[in-house]
Structures are given as C-alpha cells and as structure tokens.
C-alpha cells in the first residue's frame, strides 16, 4: 500500500507535547508537506514549550520564538530579510488560537491587508492551553475552561475568524483538521504554491484541555467535522468559498460533545442550543458557498 502523506519525517521525536497532542500532529503534517526550506515564527503558545528547552529543538528547521502578539509581524520581517538577500524560503507564522484570535489578530490583520508573502497557520485547540486552559476567542459555546467554570460556562460562540480573514480578500484561506491529513497536506501544498498572505486554521484537539482521553484526539477531530461543528473549506481571494469535505449525513453534536469532559456539565437544553447554533452557522456558511 502507498503512503497517503509525505514520508519524510522532519519533526523529531522527544518533543514535550502531551500524550495525543493535536498540535504536535499538526506540526508533523505541516513540516512533512512544506519541507526543510521552511522557517517558523512561533509566538507564545504550546509550541514554545513543545519544541524543547535551549539548547535543544525538536523540529530540525529554524524556529524563531517571538512575542505573543507578534507571530505575523515577525514572519513579515523574516520574509523581507530573506527577500532582500535573494533567498526564497517558506516563512510560516505558527501560532495557537490565543495568539491568533485574540492578542495576535492586529499583526495578523496588518500582514494580510499588506498581503505579505507569509503562510499563517493557527493550530486551534480552543483555549489558552499552555497557561492551563483559560478561555480564548476560539473557545466554543458552553465549554468549560478554568476562566469559564461549570457554573458559568462560555456564554459566547467561537469567533468566526475565517470570515474575518475572508474580509481581507487575501489569496488563500483554508480550514483543516488533524483527522484528515490528506486534505490538510493538499491544502498546504496549495498554500505553498501561492504568493501573498495565506491563512490555514488546523483543528487540533487538546486532550488535557478538553478533558478527553488522548486516544480520542483523531476521533474527536473527525467527529467535529462529521457533526459540522468544524467544517473543512477553502476560500480563494476571500470570495470563492468551497467545502472540501462534504458530510452527507451529519451526526448529532452530542456524539462529539459526550467524549469531552469540558462539556460534561451540559444540560439537554444546552445540547439543543449548541445543535441549533451549528445549524445556524451551517446555513450562514451555505450562503457563502452558494449552495
């Protein structure tokens, strides 16, 4: 049988990610596809720890650790530095959801508006996991975190970052999931071939932060797609929306929710509310896709 994703391992083992880390899987796929002529600008996020302590590093390509809000701007600087020296390198901003949806959105928006030639990848685990599970703009409705305790779970839906990015009319935006590595590597290949700012959101479950069994990381990522909680899509030039993984018979959200301790407190009403929200978001998305 053939391998369905690139064979070469660039990311090394021995890294400090938790068991079953979706963010580690996302990095592994990304490096496999982008290859060694790649540089990462990494703001404060799980990966600032996962990569290992000075003077060690797990990824075997250059990593530039930068300030929390500065993944995109640092990447823009790195790209300009290479360009003026005549070097053609894939420059990637590699940030978590806190560094993307929240504190880093200004620099990201600036880079996208200028259309700087960088690939921005957010590995989205839906909370500030590195600091111990605090809510971010990406945390979903009704989820528990340490700052949205069970008595007061998150009262706002996950920020629709993809629409914000689409509003920049940037050349390429995609969502991907660690459960669909072939789709992910295809999107990375495409992103790599395009000039300008490209944005990729990789859905990356976090077993400790989601209070989930590490063995279920890929299963959860798949269920998120099968329940339409997280949709796999591509947007070209901010206007041309396309679903890349069509779900014929979506599963009820409870199948996804019940495997996660962060949703253990949900009442039946809560589950219905989440289901309604999923339908509503799906309809909004369908309008954009034009189906």
């Amino acid at each position: 049988m053939k391998l369905t994703i690139p064979e070469e391992e660039i990311m090394g083992h021995g890294h400090l990610a938790c068991q079953g880390c979706g963010g580690a899987l996302a990095m592994r796929y990304t490096l496999k596809t982008l290859g060694r002529n790649t540089v990462l600008s990494v703001p404060a996020c799980c990966w600032s720890v996962i990569d290992g302590p000075f003077p060690h590093s797990a990824v075997n390509i250059p990593v530039f650790h930068t300030a929390f809000e500065a993944a995109a701007s640092t990447a823009s600087g790195i790209k300009a530095g290479f360009e003026i020296q005549g070097k053609d390198v894939n420059v990637v901003a590699w940030a978590g959801d806190g560094g993307t949806y929240d504190i880093g959105i200004q620099a990201l928006s600036g880079a996208a508006e200028r259309n700087d030639d960088i690939l921005y990848i957010c590995y989205d685990n839906e909370a500030y996991m590195n600091t111990g599970v605090q809510r971010s703009g990406s945390t979903p409705l009704k989820a528990w975190t340490t700052t949205t305790p069970v008595a007061h779970p998150k009262d706002r839906p996950k920020k629709d970052l993809i629409s914000i990015m689409a509003a920049h009319r940037m050349p390429y935006i995609a969502t991907a999931s660690v459960a669909y590595p072939e789709d992910l590597t295809e999107k990375l290949e495409k992103a790599k071939s395009i000039k300008g700012t490209r944005f990729l959101l990789i859905f990356s479950p976090c077993p400790p932060g989601w209070r989930a069994d590490p063995k279920n990381t890929v299963k959860l990522a798949r269920l998120a797609v099968e329940t339409k909680v997280f949709n796999l899509l591509e947007i070209e030039n901010g206007l041309d929306w396309r679903i890349t993984k069509k779900i014929r018979k979506p599963k009820p959200v409870i199948e996804y929710l019940k495997l996660q301790g962060r949703f253990r407190h949900l009442t039946e009403d809560d589950v219905s509310l989440i289901q309604e929200n999923v339908e509503k978001e799906w309809n909004i998305l369908m309008n954009k896709v034009g189906e």
Binding site: G14, G52, P55, S57, A58
Partner: peptide
C-alpha cells in the same frame, strides 16, 4: 543527555538550539 552549558565561555551568545530532543526518551 540534556545539555546544560557549564560556564559562560561554553554558552553561545544567544539562546540558539544546537541539539535535537532525542535525549528525551518519552
């Protein structure tokens, strides 16, 4: 093993990685 530089003279001028994480037998 994990590398810890003994003295200033052995330490690079900035925090650059020179080694992999293979020592960390997870």
């Amino acid at each position: 093993k994990q590398i810890v530089f003994d003295k200033v003279k052995d330490t690079p001028p900035l925090a650059v990685s020179l080694y992999t994480m293979d020592y960390n037998k997870t």
